[in-house]
Simulated assay, not measured.
Amino acid sequence: MKRIDINSPAKINLDLKIFEKNDHGYHNIETSFQYIDLFDHMTFEVSERGISIQSNKSFLENKDNTIYKSAKSLIHLTNSKKGINITIEKNIPVGAGLGGGSSNSASTIIALNKLWGLNLTKNKLMGIAKEIGADVPFFIHGENAYGSGIGDKLKSKLPTKDKILLIYPKINNSSSEMYHLLDIQRGDNIEKSHHKQNDFWNVFLDKNNEINEFYELISPEYNINLSGSGSCMFILYKKDNEIKEILKKIPSNWRFFFCKPLQYSPICYIK
Rank of each mutant, 00 (worst) to 15 (best):
I235C: 04
K114H: 15
D15T: 04
L118W: 06
H180N: 14
I92V: 07
I92T: 02
N79C: 13
S102P: 00
K2L: 14
H41I: 13
N123Y: 11
K248S: 15
R186L: 10
L182S: 08
Y168S: 08
L165C: 06
L77F: 09
S32W: 01
I92Y: 01
K72G: 11
I211L: 10
F256L: 09
H141A: 06
L115T: 07
G142K: 00
N62E: 14
I218S: 07
S174F: 09
I92R: 00
L236M: 11
K72P: 01
R186A: 14
N123G: 12
K157T: 13
E213K: 04
N172W: 02
L120Q: 03
G100M: 02
D40C: 05
A134M: 08
K11A: 08
F39M: 04
T108M: 06
T160N: 09
I150F: 08
T66C: 02
T108F: 03
L115C: 10
Q34Y: 04
K238G: 10
N173H: 04
L236S: 07
I51V: 09
I164P: 00
L181D: 15
S229V: 05
K248W: 06
S73D: 10
L60N: 02
I184Y: 13
P220A: 13
P9G: 09
G133I: 01
N253H: 13
I167E: 01
E242W: 03
L14P: 00
N253G: 07
H141T: 00
K238D: 15
Y269K: 08
K170D: 15
S219A: 09
K163E: 10
Q185G: 15
F59M: 07
P93F: 02
Y222G: 07
W116T: 01
W116Y: 08
Y68I: 06
N202D: 14
Y35I: 03
S102C: 07
G117T: 08
A96G: 09
W116D: 02
W201Q: 10
K238H: 12
N91K: 06
S156H: 09
N209E: 14
D206T: 06
K207Q: 14
N212C: 14
F59R: 02
H27K: 05
F200Q: 02
S73V: 04
E221P: 00
H27S: 08
D152L: 03
K239M: 13
N208Y: 10
Q34V: 05
L158I: 09
D206V: 01
L98G: 05
K124Y: 07
S252D: 14
I29Y: 04
L115A: 12
I86E: 00
N144S: 12
Y179Q: 10
H24V: 13
N22H: 12
T108H: 03
E30A: 08
M178N: 09
W254D: 06
G149Q: 04
R186H: 12
L182D: 09
G95K: 03
E245F: 04
F234C: 07
I67R: 02
N104M: 05
E245T: 06
T87G: 09
I243R: 03
D162S: 11
D64P: 01
P169T: 04
G97N: 07
A129S: 11
E61Y: 04
N223S: 14
D5L: 08
L158P: 01
I235V: 13
N173W: 00
P220F: 11
C232K: 01
H41N: 15
Q34N: 12
I4S: 11
D183V: 08
S32R: 02
